[in-house]
Design a protein around this nucleic acid. Structure first.
Lengths: 143, 143
DNA sequence: GTTGCTTTGCAATTGATTGTCAACTGGCGC
DNA sequence: GCGCCAGTTGACAATCAATTGCAAAGCAAC
């Protein structure tokens, strides 16, 4: 009986097929990205990677992020102007609500908003390649 | 007969009322921001400011942008991850469509999208303080 | 004008990211 | 399995945007 594949996308296979080497540092970084659902920045990914392999360098984290971004495997964000934060691109597209007090990031999705965006772009003679919708808010006090 | 006020908001008056000095560099920078409808970055504002007063420094541009942002007089953007770009906050709120080929920025507004955003935030127990919606697209070829 | 506190220009600094380069290593070919 | 070698890496220098420390200069109240 074949081993049941995890829900993690097999980026290793994909990279190899694209002629990119699957090295130890890359494996470590990919593993970090596919086993979290938060939005770490490069330094945070670096910290986690060093726990696994203390020879990994920060440059390699940045290089790998750029590589994976090129493959569309991750998305890059810049919530509130800070350092870039990354998330695994697997799974459905979604937008973000950032809690201004805690920094928490909540994901949401609205087909109706997406449809309106397309409509607006079309009216302006454009085709949307991608978009970025970020809501910055505070929890409503329900004391 | 009183001089007809221009359509430029009187930031000078507002700043003075807030106990902030209206200095020559600030006047120059504010004048640049209120007389353009594009989205210049700090370096571009600096270049334009030097034309008027060649003693103005880039630090002052950055400092003034931060000051004005604090007053809500300007908005800060980071389209596509480049350096921060600014725009006069006077006038109605709007979102942006960025032409991926030319870098042009087109402003648009959709009450329906705003309403949906509020609805989503409310459902998540949040109150939106501000938001950022950027569409990145390409002109549809109309050969 | 004088005065006092703000603001400025300059230079140095920070923080994030990218470039350089010698050393290293996946993974194909044997 | 084993060696080869272009793709990668780690270390560190370099770059880029943005900020800050400080002495000198400027604004606004008297």
């Amino acid at each position: 009986m074949p081993k049941r594949a995890s829900n993690k996308p097999d980026y290793a296979r994909e990279l190899r097929r694209a002629g990119v080497r699957v090295t130890r540092p890359r494996r470590v970084i990919i593993d970090i990205l596919t086993s979290t659902d938060d939005h770490p920045d490069a330094m945070e990914i670096f910290r986690r990677a060093v726990q696994v392999d203390n020879s990994i360098s920060l440059s390699t984290v940045y290089r790998t992020m750029k590589l994976l971004e090129g493959f569309g495997a991750i998305h890059r964000h810049a919530f509130g102007g800070g350092p870039a934060r990354f998330e695994n691109a697997a799974g459905e597209h979604h937008d973000h609500l950032i809690d201004l007090d805690t920094g928490d990031v909540i994901e949401f999705k609205s087909d109706r908003i997406e449809a309106l965006q397309d409509e607006i772009a079309k009216a302006l003679g454009y085709e949307i390649i991608h978009h970025r919708l970020e809501l910055y808010g505070r929890k409503k006090r329900g004391t």
